[in-house]
Design a protein around this nucleic acid. Structure first.
Length: 734
DNA sequence: GCAAGAAGACTTTTT
DNA sequence: GTCTTCTTGC
């Protein structure tokens, strides 16, 4: 690229301003579908070509590996050069890089291991058991989130003030013990990566100076998702002198419950000197009907930075609102509509069904299966989080570090080799009392014969196995090491003998792990491995596995309808979008309805959902829903009422006839889908309570036909569901 | 040591 | 309703 202004080609004025602003702090408020990534990438290119910034002086920070990967690839495509050594990565991968490079200054063992939240939870559980702490009063998950929460606020145990509160004091003590366990095992959790690297920089002025000097510009994506620790980290790293470009959207902040601080956006504007704020409001994704609805919805939130999406594009179709009798009917409507769309020539992959909570997917899936519509679910378990993979990784971790108690405990009896809970208990007690690792305790126990008989034989066999694996794999390539370990440890055989498809899949996954290792050494991985083989490569591979848990989306075999939660839909777009279960208590979720702040986050989540749709949006809800095995009456979500009437149309039964919404509160609230049979027949509506001389009281679920022959399906208390012909059954409305 | 059965939970999940 | 976790019994 010779002419730098080419970088600004085909950009709107706001985008141009964001890309070509002179070095200095800048906040880009980037609305959904406003070309955010493009601006970020072009901004970097501009800084390099117009301002002469060296590629090595760039630090690009994202939240997900996917975003980092995309930023890197697009930048490489734009500039036409390889940017392998440029620092673009997630907060965690960058912190990791710092800690690996300066492990001594960070007071970490050279071969420290990264543990994911799953490992962390196991560790906490064990801790509670070891200390005989009531896990009713201190649920492991709560303890875990307390620990992570502290770290995310940048707090070490001694910095947490319990205010004489015994409960809190216990939590702090657990945090302290947890930390001790991690230190002893050379384990670093996600929060620790950031906190430790912050402390590393804070406590080593020379190092800090070095990095502050090195980075000429720092760019941060999804700034509304930063937590307190990440904000502090950025502040420290830049010394508030290195210019920053941060991109974010306060209206799309949906991770507050995980510690993200939406107010960091405003804080940035206020605290960092001379911040220029640019708004990207032109939307290139959705029709104006959809944008109008989204704008109107989000206007109900207070304290926004202020932003209004607009488009040069067409008005498009109105948003269709469908009110089902129950969740099955809702699903049927969605799937019927999808089949119509597919017949019209739309690809299934262009259609997404979004929902608030995972439990909702079941009914949708069943309906899709019944109607033979291929689909795939985003989310769910990721590759490196699978049981068999974690087991394999645990063996590998033991090769590098025998003192990794969590890993040892994980596989000491997998596959079963006669080491029961009893024996493990003995080892644990001993380890705790003598303050050594399980591995050490195991050897001590064998030496002084406190382990004897069958237990001793089994334990010795395990110890020998680990040593043998280590010896046998010395000098092998990474994928050969892994292949050897899963074979010799008996893991593969263990899963092969498992019955059903599950075992088959697990064997395949283990084989896939070997393939992944091959790819990793060949540099296909996101974080380029440092040169090296054997143990060095293994260490890199294990870190990569923890930090980049594998693709979230299942393999795409064919053209599939996409199902996912609203949270996982963030950042994606689809021509046709269904949002299911738009009901009070579900969306907004009842757990978030009380506090205004959390309700606003639900509204932002809804805003995110609406803005995923490019051409056509459907909002559906059910009047009766099976939730946790109980049938509950549902009211339409308040969010529906917050959308402007003129952007909506109500879809009637069978999804064929539609008419504009005329009077409020027509949308869902009291939809008079009258099934009245004329004459003397009672006027009934779906969801209405009725009484029958024989069956007693019930609720109308469904209806079909007209006049005397009309039938209604009624759910009677104690009698179950029945179809009754209106002309005969003596139903009285209640 | 394992399998079956009971009991309880059950919002969202970037690393 | 269904998934996971824990207990109990063989």
């Amino acid at each position: 690229m010779d002419d730098v202004t080419a970088i600004l080609d085909h950009m709107n004025p706001a985008q141009r301003e964001a890309v070509s602003a002179p070095q200095g702090n800048m906040l880009v408020l980037a609305g959904a579908g406003s070309g955010k990534t493009r601006v970020l990438v072009h901004r970097i290119a501009w800084l390099m070509q117009a301002e002469g910034l060296s590629p090595y002086a760039v630090l690009g920070v994202t939240f997900t590996n996917k975003a980092a990967r995309e930023m890197r690839t697009r930048l490489e495509a734009l500039l036409g050069i390889s940017l392998r050594n440029v620092w673009v990565g997630t907060f965690h991968s960058i912190a990791h890089r710092l800690l690996r490079t300066h492990w001594q200054d960070a007071r970490l063992p050279q071969h420290f291991q990264i543990i994911d939240s799953d490992d962390q939870l196991r560790l906490v559980k064990r801790l509670l058991k070891d200390h005989r702490i009531d896990d009713e009063r201190f649920p492991p998950r709560q303890v875990q989130s307390f620990i992570s929460g502290c770290k995310e606020e940048g707090l070490r145990p001694h910095q947490v003030d319990a205010h004489g509160d015994a409960y809190l004091a216990q939590m702090v003590e657990l945090y302290e013990r947890y930390q001790l366990t991690c230190e002893r095992g050379g384990l670093v959790d996600f929060g620790e990566l950031l906190l430790r690297s912050l402390e590393l920089l804070r406590d080593n002025p020379a190092l800090l100076a070095h990095y502050q000097e090195r980075f000429g510009h720092v760019l941060v994506d999804e700034f509304q998702d930063t937590n307190t620790l990440q904000y502090a980290w950025l502040k420290l790293l830049t010394g508030m002198k290195t210019p920053m470009t941060v991109v974010g959207d306060d209206d799309q902040s949906i991770y507050g419950w995980r510690g993200a601080r939406i107010e960091n956006i405003r804080r940035f504007e206020q605290e960092f000197p001379a911040t220029r704020t640019v708004r990207l409001e032109q939307n290139y994704r959705s029709t104006s009907a959809i944008l109008d609805a989204a704008n109107a919805l989000i206007r109900h939130n207070a304290g926004r930075m202020g932003k209004e999406l607009w488009t040069e594009g067409a008005r498009g179709e109105p948003i269709s609102v469908y009110s089902g009798f129950n969740d099955l009917d809702e699903a049927r409507f969605i799937v019927d509509t999808i089949r119509e769309k597919v017949e019209e020539g739309i690809n299934r992959r262009e259609i997404a069904i979004l929902y608030r909570s995972n439990a909702q997917s079941r009914v949708l899936e069943e309906t899709l299966i019944r109607q033979g519509v291929p689909y795939r679910i985003y989310g769910g378990q990721r590759f490196y989080e699978r049981l068999e993979i974690k087991n394999a990784l645990a063996y590998l971790r033991l090769l590098l570090n025998r003192d990794d108690d969590a890993s040892l405990e994980r596989v000491i009896n997998v596959p079963a080799r006669g080491i029961g809970t009893r024996t493990v208990e003995v080892l644990r007690t001993r380890a705790r009392q003598t303050e050594v690792s399980l591995w050490q305790a195991l050897h001590d126990g064998l030496l002084d014969a406190s382990l004897k008989g069958r237990a001793a034989t089994a334990v010795r066999a395990f110890a020998d196995l680990i040593e043998r694996l280590d010896n046998d794999t010395a000098g092998l390539a990474l994928h050969e090491i892994i292949d050897h370990v899963i074979e010799t440890s008996g893991l593969i055989e263990h899963h092969r003998s498992e019955k059903g498809e599950k075992g088959q899949a697990r064997v395949e996954n283990l084989e896939e792990l070997v393939t992944a290792a091959k790819a990793f050494t060949q540099g296909e991985a996101f974080e380029p491995p440092e040169a090296g083989e054997g143990a060095v490569a293994l260490e890199g591979f294990l870190s990569e596995a923890a930090l980049n848990a594998g693709d979230h989306e299942a393999e795409e075999f064919e053209d599939c309808v996409q199902l996912m939660t609203l949270h996982s839909a963030k950042g994606l777009e689809f021509p046709v979008v269904f949002i299911a279960g738009v009901e009070e208590g579900l969306f907004p979720h009842k757990m978030s309805m009380e506090e205004p702040g959390r309700l606003e986050e639900e509204r932002r989540l809804c805003y995110v959902g609406l803005t995923r749709a490019m051409r056509k949006l459907y909002l559906t809800h059910a009047e009766l829903r099976r939730l946790h095995g109980k049938e509950t009456f549902q009211r339409a979500s308040r969010f529906l009422r917050e959308l402007p009437e003129e952007t909506l149309e109500e879809v009637r039964l069978r999804g064929q006839i539609s008419r504009p919404v005329t009077a409020r509160p027509a949308v869902g609230l009291s939809r008079q889908t009258s099934v009245d049979g004329g004459g003397e027949l009672p006027s009934l509506s779906l969801g209405q309570r009725v009484s029958h001389p024989v069956f007693g009281e019930g609720v109308i679920l469904n209806a079909e036909g007209e006049g005397e022959r009309a039938r209604v399906q009624v759910s009677f208390e104690g009698e179950g569901d029945k179809w009754l012909v209106l002309g005969f059954a003596k139903l009285k409305p209640l």
